[in-house]
Structure formats: C-alpha cells, structure tokens
C-alpha cells in the first residue's frame, strides 16, 4: 500500500502486454493475417479480405476472449485455494477439482447414453454440461474441505486430490466401455481442452459465471489476507471463518467448474500463475495479488493458445498439453529457485 505508485505502473505495463498478446493471438493462426489488418479489424475497419474479417470476428476473437476468461479464472481459483488450504501446491487440478468437473461431464455425456432407458434427457447442451461439471467440481471441493478441517496434514489433501483423479479415470473407462463411439469421442475431445469451440452466446454465459466468481472473490479479499496468519488468528481478527470459507469455496467451485465445463480440464495455470505473480509483485496482499493474477492468467493463456496454433500450420495442439509443457517446468523452476514454495 505504501508503494501504490509502483504497483500502478506495474499494472499499466501488464495491461499493455495483455493488449499486445491479445492482438498477436488474433493475428496468428492457420491463416496468417497481418498485424496492421488485425488492428484495423479490432477498431471496426473494413479489411481488404472479406474472409479475414469473418475469421477474426467469428473465430479468433471469441477464442481469444475465452482464453482470457479461462486463464484469469483458473489463476484466481488457484490463488483462492492456496490461501484457503494454506498450501502452496493447491490448485484446481492438483486438488482434484478438475477431476470432479471431468467426472460430471463424463457422467452427462456418456452416462446419459448408458442410462437413456431411465432418463430421457437426450439433449446435452452447453448449459447442462456446465451445470454437470460445476456440480462435479463442487462435490469434490466439499469433500476436500471436509477432509481439510479434520486432517491438518496438507499431504493428505494432495493424495485425496490424486485419488479423485484415479476414481475419475476409472469411472470414465467403465462408462466408455458401455457407451457408443460418438459419445466417447465427444468426451475425449472435451478432455483435451479447447478454447475455440465457444459461440458468442456460450462466451456470454462463461463471462457471467467468471464475473460472479471474481465478485465473490473480491468480497473475500479481507478475510483472505487475515487467513495468511492462520485460521485462529483470522478468527481473532474478527473474520467469520465459516461464512468466509463457504464464500471462497463457492467462488472456486464456480470458477473452476464453469471453466472446465466450457474449455475442458486445463492443467497448471491455476497452480503456477499465483506463484509467478507473487515472485514478480513481491507481496502477499490479495488486494494486489487478485487483479495481478487475473491479468497474468489471461496473458499466459493467450501465449499458450498462440503456441498451440503452431503459426502458419493447420494443426492445433490440445491446449491442455501446451499449458502442461509450459506450466510444469515453471513450477519446477520456482521450486529450485526458492527451494521452498510459499504462498
């Protein structure tokens, strides 16, 4: 708070980078569109090439906006979890929240065909998928939090997260055995993670959900800061731990759940971005960390997506693979550099 000027400068700088990578992301892809034409399109100008305008507005901008929402939301949910669980390794992926979302999605996509004789909800639309994945991630989060209050050992939590991953993959393989090829393909495609499948309408829904998650997180800023001291100290500072904990869990569930539902499970962003942000901003204050993590997450996701495009190639890598390839070394580097990971 004392150095608010330097923070303002850092934020301006970050926003500038965000705009830069956003533009870069839109201009690159299987069809290469020159940067100046991209900027022209963004400001509503007419392009020399009619198809470029179509590509930019109906495909690339929704995809870039999805990347921003996904990166920002996952990074924020990682930050919330690291503080809530007092664990630097916490994140939507590690704690099994993404697995929970996958399970919800798998049950909906493949389970509906298995259980078709009992239920006749043949239509799997984006909203039901989002709800199923959110419920899945939410349930896992509730289990994790109930264990966390009983078991003080953070190691146990991580193992539980791993176990949920195993249970998910087991149930998915059972389901895939009984389901038809089309549904299986739909699920596997979803599980690769993808930013490019969202229509403007779906994007609006995701935007609303991420915004709700951010809103709840902002309400929790003060309690999150107090929680840095530990639960008993936080309570002694007047924090209503029960309410705050639920608020944070709901925020995390909405963020991780809805994002995983729309974009598939995306690893490492939630874990790595908060740590990178703490390194660069050198603070633990959530008033600074929260906006910083949102912007960083968005930047990182846009960069990952740009890499996934493989410029000038028609192939697109699964986004989940790219974030892992970039994210895992970052975590290792942080561990080696600081020797101890802290939150």
């Amino acid at each position: 708070m004392l150095e608010s000027k330097t923070y303002r400068f850092s934020f301006l700088f970050l926003l500038l980078i965000l705009v830069l990578v956003f533009t870069l992301n839109i201009s690159s892809g299987s069809v290469s569109i020159p940067i100046n034409e991209t900027i022209n399109a963004l400001f509503g100008g007419t392009l020399q090439n009619e198809s470029w305008s179509y590509i930019i507005w109906d495909y690339r901008i929704p995809k870039a906006l999805t990347a921003i929402l996904v990166g920002a939301g996952l990074a924020l949910s990682g930050l919330l979890m690291q503080t809530l669980f007092r664990n630097p390794l916490a994140g939507p992926f590690v704690l099994g929240i993404s697995s929970g979302a996958s399970l919800g999605a798998a049950l909906l996509i493949m389970g509906s065909s298995v259980l078709a004789s009992f239920f006749s909800f043949g239509l799997i639309n984006d909203i039901s998928l989002a709800i199923a994945a959110s419920i899945g991630s939410f349930l896992v989060l509730m289990v994790v939090i109930s264990v966390a209050t009983k078991v003080k050992d953070t190691m146990a939590l991580l193992i539980i997260g791993l176990m949920f991953g195993s249970i998910t993959s087991a149930i998915v393989s059972v389901l895939s055995y009984f389901t038809n090829a089309e549904k299986l393909q739909q699920y596997i495609y979803w599980s690769y993670g993808s930013l490019g499948n969202l229509s403007w309408r779906q994007l609006g829904l995701l935007f609303a959900l991420v915004l709700a998650g951010i809103f709840l997180s902002i309400l929790s800023i003060k309690s999150l800061n107090a929680m840095l001291l530990g639960e008993n100290y936080a309570r002694s500072l007047g924090v209503n731990m029960k309410t705050s904990r639920y608020l944070i869990i709901i925020a995390t569930g909405i963020l991780a759940g809805s994002i995983t539902a729309f974009a598939g499970p995306i690893a490492f962003v939630g874990l790595a971005v908060p740590h990178l942000t703490r390194q660069i901003f050198n603070t633990t204050d959530h008033r600074i960390l929260m906006p910083a993590v949102l912007i960083y997450g968005a930047i990182l996701m846009l960069i990952c997506d740009t890499i996934a495009q493989l410029p000038t190639s028609a192939n697109v890598l699964p986004i989940n693979a790219v974030t892992s390839i970039i994210g895992a070394p970052v975590v290792i580097w942080l561990l080696i550099r600081k020797r101890k990971m802290m939150f």
């Binding site: 007092r86 800061n225 107090a226 840095l228 001291l229 703490r278 633990t284 802290m342 939150f343």
Partner: peptide, 16 residues
C-alpha cells in the same frame, strides 16, 4: 502455532 504464510513482510503482517 506458526503463522500460515511466512512470505509476508513484517509491515504487511502488522497491518493485518
């Protein structure tokens, strides 16, 4: 009991 995050600066901790 130890504080949860030792990554805080003294000034940040006091402000809490």
């Amino acid at each position: 009991e130890p504080i949860a995050s030792k990554n805080m600066t003294v000034a940040e901790l006091l402000a809490l």
